[in-house]
Design a protein around this nucleic acid. Structure first.
Lengths: 177, 177
DNA sequence: ACGCTATACATCGTTGCCGAGGTATTGTGT
DNA sequence: ACACAATACCTCGGCAACGATGTATAGCGT
């Protein structure tokens, strides 16, 4: 998730670590803050894998900056991660939102639509959080107001997302033809 | 999150690892599956910390079962984790839903309400995923249909949750008086 | 007779993430 | 003069999570 965000932001423009960090904080920081001690090692991993290169530049205000630029391999890796996300990226909202934030980089509308259809398939599966044996329980069947809340919120989210998915898929299909 | 779920389920009734695993899979598995190799070490950690004890019992069908029972310290730790969740448990939906699934165990309505109010405060902060400088961008201002989707879905979730939070807080306050 | 699935638990090595702490420099408030 | 915040990067120890793999037993279909 973090690596995807790094690749995604660098695809737009070369950045140095500090600015990259602020970009990531703006994107997902209110939900899941990213520690510096997580970001810098992640950058190193990507550099070691040849997905980005760094160029040292005299710091504008303070210490020298390491400007990070995506390599060709990095660009290809981003495309691969966007086009063939692991199942976790589809099902976990945190991961999914990060993927959506960069899905526009995937130039092919058909490839974009394929990813959205995977999410659609996931949302259309009858799944709950609470069961009576194998039968999913609905909000109305629960006495616990907090568990009822979980289902109420999840249902609202699901509805909004299904509507958006169908809309967006329709317009992507329109472009494809 | 995983440890909270273990403590939460065991508070209801002693269980052995295998059944516990199926309970957890039902609760959060469709979004974030839990590997066996994550669950068993987590159980060991909790046992080592004195939060649960295990009793070996001949297996009903297969290998002997280790029936897990919450200790008094385990019960107290559950209450502490429910009443004083880390900020991450409040902001990250995955964590928050797990917390909500067990919040009923916290007997005091005032303590439950205090937790809900922390989530309310978080949701009332003006936060977006995308910014123009410091100004949060609304869905309408985005050209990118995927980023627009993120905001559309997040807004629907937020609305539904705010309504539910206010409702539930009102009825909890009613009980308190 | 044989394989498959389900039950039931466990270890191992690798990766990923975090908090705490460290090293500098520049600009701002008091 | 001095503290503090912001900029800019880094290391270390520890923990948590994962996939792969191993060890059994019971029951079912073919």
């Amino acid at each position: 998730m973090l690596e995807l965000a790094i690749l995604g932001f660098l695809y737009d423009a070369p950045l140095h670590g500090y600015v990259l960090r602020r970009h990531i904080a703006a994107l997902t920081g209110h939900v899941r803050p990213v520690a510096e001690s997580t970001l810098y090692p992640a950058i190193k991993r990507l550099e070691k894998a040849g997905l980005l290169v760094r160029a040292t530049e005299p710091g504008a205000v303070a210490a020298p900056r390491h400007v990070l630029t995506l390599t060709d391999a990095g660009g290809r890796e981003l495309m691969r991660r966007l086009a063939e996300p692991a199942q976790r990226e589809i099902t976990d909202e945190n991961h999914w939102f990060t993927l959506l934030a960069f899905l526009r980089h995937l130039a092919d509308p058909a490839a974009q639509a394929a990813v959205l259809r995977r999410r659609l398939a996931f949302l259309e599966e009858p799944a709950s959080f609470f069961y009576d044996g194998d039968r999913p329980l609905s909000a109305e069947e629960l006495d616990d107001p907090f568990r009822r809340g979980v289902l109420t919120i999840a249902r609202a989210t699901s509805r909004a997302e299904l509507a958006w998915l169908r809309d967006t898929l329709a317009s992507l299909d329109g472009v494809g033809r």
